[in-house]
Amino acid sequence: MNDNIGVLGCGWLGLPLAKYFLSQGHKVYGSTTSAEKLRLLQKDGIHAYHISLSPAGIHGDIQGFLSNINILIINLPPKLRSGNQESFVEKIKLLHSEIKENTVLKIIFVSSTAVYGEVDGEVTETTVPKPSTESGRQLLECEQLFQQDNALETTIIRFGGLIGPNRHPVTMLSKRQKLTNGNHPVNLIHLDDCIHMISTLIENNYWNQVFNGVYPLHPTKKEYYSSEALKRGIPSPDYSGSSSDKFSKIVLSKNFLDKNHVFQTSILS
């Protein structure tokens, strides 16, 4: 029997993810904050809900959305940059309360390797997170909220930097000067592997676990972004700023690879 899967947050990752599960015969429910995107989701065959979260409340039919599904993928990145100080934790606490009012028991919480902070050397799922950014701190608190709820089966997946069609950091870095830490390794993952990982976790019932999602190739930032810029015919970013040898972390997807799964899409263009 196929699961009814809910994707809360049909953005750059969530929409292709929802489409993938549809193609596999699942009934898929998706949420968006955009009325325009609502129609696009419906056109794709996704049962679409107009839902937005704020620290003050959840707008939209969240109970209607949750009542249809048995697996929920929470794909809501904290938007804490550009002076936005609203609490991501408060939003997720409200969501957690709504989940408790419903019958959803299995959750995949999409997090980030930002929770590890400025760790030096190799990082695995057993490394103790020490977030150094507000985004990382709030993500870790949200992870713990779900992990400590024994009534739910929650798996955390911590993705590295996301790349894919029409999305690559080199396009933003291209014309920048005096960037630092050019000798530090990249920790990236392609959109296709994000989908591959999430679907693999669900298919194999890997619940109540933590997974890092980073492609196992870690050239230096200078080497990688210079090469990617060359392939695109755009100026290479300039890494002539001062660099630190400290906090040069390599994130390993040990849990996933130890289970004999593989990554399918290279981070090299």
Score class of each variant (00 low, 15 high):
residue 32 T to W: 09
residue 32 T to S: 13
residue 33 T to I: 15
residue 33 T to C: 13
residue 33 T to F: 12
residue 33 T to K: 13
residue 34 S to E: 12
residue 35 A to M: 10
residue 35 A to F: 09
residue 35 A to N: 07
residue 36 E to W: 08
residue 36 E to K: 14
residue 36 E to A: 12
residue 37 K to H: 12
residue 37 K to S: 07
residue 37 K to M: 07
residue 38 L to T: 00
residue 38 L to E: 01
residue 38 L to M: 06
residue 39 R to H: 09
residue 39 R to V: 08
residue 39 R to E: 10
residue 39 R to N: 10
residue 40 L to Y: 08
residue 41 L to A: 05
residue 41 L to M: 08
residue 42 Q to S: 14
residue 43 K to C: 09
residue 43 K to A: 15
residue 43 K to E: 15
residue 44 D to Y: 07
residue 44 D to W: 04
residue 45 G to P: 06
residue 45 G to I: 13
residue 47 H to W: 03
residue 47 H to V: 11
residue 48 A to V: 07
residue 51 I to H: 05
residue 51 I to E: 04
residue 52 S to N: 14
residue 52 S to R: 15
residue 52 S to E: 14
residue 52 S to C: 14
residue 53 L to M: 14
residue 53 L to G: 03
residue 55 P to R: 09
residue 55 P to A: 14
residue 58 I to H: 09
residue 58 I to E: 07
residue 59 H to W: 11
residue 60 G to S: 14
residue 60 G to N: 11
residue 61 D to G: 10
residue 62 I to D: 05
residue 63 Q to C: 09
residue 63 Q to F: 08
residue 64 G to P: 09
residue 64 G to W: 13
residue 65 F to H: 01
residue 66 L to P: 03
residue 66 L to F: 08
residue 67 S to G: 11
residue 67 S to C: 09
residue 67 S to Y: 05
residue 67 S to H: 10
residue 67 S to R: 10
residue 68 N to S: 14
residue 70 N to Q: 07
residue 70 N to I: 06
residue 70 N to M: 05
residue 70 N to T: 05
residue 70 N to R: 08
residue 71 I to L: 10
residue 72 L to Y: 03
residue 74 I to S: 00
residue 75 N to C: 05
residue 76 L to Q: 00
residue 77 P to D: 05
residue 77 P to L: 07
residue 77 P to Q: 06
residue 77 P to C: 08
residue 78 P to N: 00
residue 78 P to Q: 02
residue 79 K to F: 00
residue 80 L to C: 03
residue 81 R to I: 09
residue 81 R to E: 10
residue 81 R to P: 03
residue 82 S to C: 04
residue 82 S to H: 11
residue 83 G to D: 13
residue 83 G to H: 12
residue 83 G to Y: 11
residue 84 N to H: 08
residue 84 N to R: 11
residue 84 N to P: 06
residue 84 N to Q: 10
residue 85 Q to S: 15
residue 85 Q to E: 15
residue 85 Q to V: 13
residue 86 E to Q: 11
residue 87 S to E: 10
residue 87 S to A: 14
residue 87 S to I: 11
residue 88 F to D: 04
residue 88 F to C: 05
residue 89 V to Y: 13
residue 90 E to K: 14
residue 90 E to C: 09
residue 90 E to W: 03
residue 91 K to G: 04
residue 91 K to R: 14
residue 91 K to N: 08
residue 92 I to D: 01
residue 93 K to H: 11
residue 95 L to P: 01
residue 96 H to L: 12
residue 96 H to F: 13
residue 97 S to W: 00
residue 98 E to V: 02
residue 98 E to W: 02
residue 99 I to T: 07
residue 99 I to H: 04
residue 100 K to Q: 15
residue 102 N to K: 05
residue 102 N to F: 04
residue 104 V to S: 02
residue 104 V to M: 03
residue 105 L to K: 14
residue 105 L to D: 12
residue 106 K to D: 09
residue 106 K to A: 04
residue 108 I to R: 01
residue 109 F to H: 02
residue 109 F to V: 03
residue 109 F to M: 05
residue 109 F to P: 01
residue 110 V to P: 00
residue 110 V to S: 01
residue 111 S to D: 01
residue 112 S to C: 07
residue 112 S to R: 02
residue 113 T to L: 08
residue 113 T to V: 14
residue 114 A to W: 01
residue 114 A to N: 11
residue 114 A to C: 07
residue 114 A to F: 03
